[in-house]
Every structure is written in C-alpha cells, then in structure tokens.
Design a protein around this nucleic acid. Structure first.
Lengths: 188, 188
DNA sequence: TCCACAGTAGACAGATCTGTCTGGTATCGT
DNA sequence: ACGATACCAGACAGATCTGTCTACTGTGGA
C-alpha cells in the first residue's frame, strides 16, 4: 500500500512539478526528472505508466493544492472573502519564481481539448469559477454569473500580466477592478 | 535581394506560423515544417540560421500583423476606437481555430525573460499598452496609466478565457468590463 | 525462512530532433 | 557565356527523447 505516499513517488512529483512549472512541460525530459529526483528509471515507470500520466498527476496535484489554498482564505462574510481571495492571488503572483498560472501554461502546450491534461485544467477552472460565483451571489449580487465571468477574467489577466509585465503595478489595479466589478464606486 | 519576400521563405513562415500557433512551438519540429511547406532542408537553413531564429521571426511577424490590424480599427474619436478595438478582439477570440494569444502561449514555452522570443513578446505588449493608454488619455481620462493597466488585464483575460472557457459569453462580459473601467456606469 | 515489493544502476531499442553536407537543377543579371 | 543565387532531394552525424529490460539490493510481513 501507500503507493501514493511512497518517498520515491513524492520526490518524483516534487521534482517534476518544479521543473514543469519553471521550464515548461515539453522542455523537460524524463531523464532530467529522474536524475534530479535521485530515482531509478524503473522506479519512475513503476509509479507512472507514461510521461503523460505524470503530467496529468502534476496538474491534478497542483489543482488540489490551489483549491485547498483558496478554500483556506479567511474573511468575515462573502464580500470580504472575495477581496481576501484576490489579495491572496496578488501575493501569489508576486512570489519569486512566479511564472504565470500553471494551468494556463500547460494548456498552451496541450492544444487538444479532449486531452486529459486539458480536461483537468477545465475542471480546475470550473471549480474556481463556481467558487467565485457563489461568493458573489452570497454577497447579494443578483447578476452573480456575469460578475463571476469578469472576476475570472481578472484572475487570468493577473496571472498573465504578473509574469509578463510588472507584478507590483497589478496588485492595486486588480483590487480596483474587483471593486468596480462588484459595482462599488472606486475613488481613484 | 528579395530574401524577405522569396516564395520559399514565405511558405516556410506561413506553415511554421500555423503549426506553432495550433500545436505549440516545442511540439513542432523542423522536419515537419519543411515537409508541409514543400521546401528542402537546405533551403530552410539558407533562410533561417536556426529554429530559434524562425521562432523569433514568427513572433515578430505576428506582432506586425496584429499592430497593423489594431491600428486599422476604425472609430470616431478615442472612446469609440477603444470600444471598437475591444469588439475586434472579441471577434478575433471567436474565430474558428482560435487558441489563445500567440504571445502568451509562446512566453509559456520560453521561461527566460532574456530570450529573444520573450523580448519580442515584451515589445509587443508594451506597444499594445501604450496604444491603449494613449486612447484612454485622448478620451480625457486623467488616470490613463491605471485604466490602461485594467484594459490590458481584460485583453489577456479575454485571450485566455476564450480559448479555455466559452468565447461567446466573454464578448458581452468584456464590453461591460471595458465600460466599467472607463468609469461609465453600466446598466446590467 | 521466504516471498513480494520497492528500490538502484544502467544498457538498450527505436524514434525524433537540430543542424551539416553533398550534389544537382534552374533562373537571372552582367 | 558565366557566375551568383535560389532551390530541391536526401544522406548523415550527434544528441536527446520515451519506454523496456536485465540484474541486483534491502526490507517487512506471513
């Protein structure tokens, strides 16, 4: 038992996650992963039937982590939780080594929408969207779907822009845009 | 002369552009490009010293096309041109075969900010940002920089979301968000 | 005690990748 | 007529990729 928690498997996942995120998926080979994880090739193929399965595990693992992180964001009431959530996203996007959203980046390398990796990305996005929509609805906004669409838009824009442009500028900008989307008039 | 406009070079660029955009850059090899372009390998390396240079040419070529397309957007006055610009982006994102923004996708495959490809992407983004900022300023908004940041955010979110989620929904959503960013109160 | 299992090390096959090189053809300006 | 240029066809080298296979080690339960 404990195939899920075996030390070797854990090392493979940790190494692959870091390399995939930092350098891209197609750019990182199995040989590199097993070398940096300090694992034999046979051990790798004992835990993962193929590289594709490793990639899917990477996406789903990161999805679990992000869902847990977002679910753990504190806040008194839905409006405060929403603002805290986007503050947390702003912090995330300013971490050293930030290189955009791993789901967006992975999708760029997997064009086929039917591919398991894309399916996992779609599931994660659907979860985020519904989470935000529920918070917006709980905050008493009648057009929760529409506002949630804007908020997802802002999340994606933040993830892309913080990597490609200046992440410091975006923090305040996103907060302002979130407030505007919630219909609150913002003093500039 | 005419090395830039030679038919073989043109075929290489057209084929590579379509394949890179549709399938990703690392996923498409030189052999595939020359086969589909109907070009000899020596001809390819006669026009491009390396694959990296082809990729850079691809990014810069697409940048020229997008700048021309955006510069050609009509409109009476800056506010109308801005709205028309984002309408055009909405159309773009609903084209069949749309697979997100080629610059964002390319950046996902090139982590190093110093790489020529990333530099070309950064230049393109800077041009778009300043174009939008000038329109906002010309429309009489005092905080043009801030609003331009939001509008870039919306552009990126549109490009990502139209590929990964439902592009039809986004069209109206983006227009609403643009109007909100411009400080106009929107009736939902 | 013994077997199943997780692990290491590394050779190997077969495909694919980038880039070079040879050799030949056609066109065009001087 | 001639040389430069643009092009095609394809072999080749050398690296790298995924995935398989052999052979061996250590450990923990039945």
């Amino acid at each position: 038992m404990a195939r899920q928690e075996s030390p070797a498997r854990h090392r493979i996942m940790a190494t692959a996650s870091a390399l995939f995120y930092a350098e891209g998926i197609h750019a990182v080979g199995i040989d590199r992963i097993i070398a940096e994880a300090g694992v034999a090739k046979a051990t790798f193929y004992h835990h993962f039937p193929s590289k594709d399965e490793l990639v899917r595990a990477y996406i789903e693992d990161q999805g679990r982590l992000q869902r847990a992180a977002i679910a753990g964001v504190p806040g008194d009431g839905p409006r405060e939780r929403l603002l805290a959530l986007y503050d947390a996203l702003g912090e995330w996007s300013r971490q050293p080594g930030f290189r955009g959203c791993m789901f967006i980046n992975a999708a760029a390398e997997y064009p086929d929408p039917a591919h398991p990796v894309r399916q996992a990305v779609a599931a994660q996005r659907a979860w985020f969207r519904s989470t935000v929509r529920d918070l917006v609805a709980a905050a008493g906004h009648p057009e929760a779907e529409r506002i949630a669409s804007i908020l997802v838009l802002l999340r994606d824009g933040l993830a892309v822009g913080a990597d490609l442009d200046d992440p410091e500028v975006l923090k305040g900008v996103v907060r302002e845009a979130v407030l505007r989307a919630l219909g609150e008039h913002v003093q500039i």
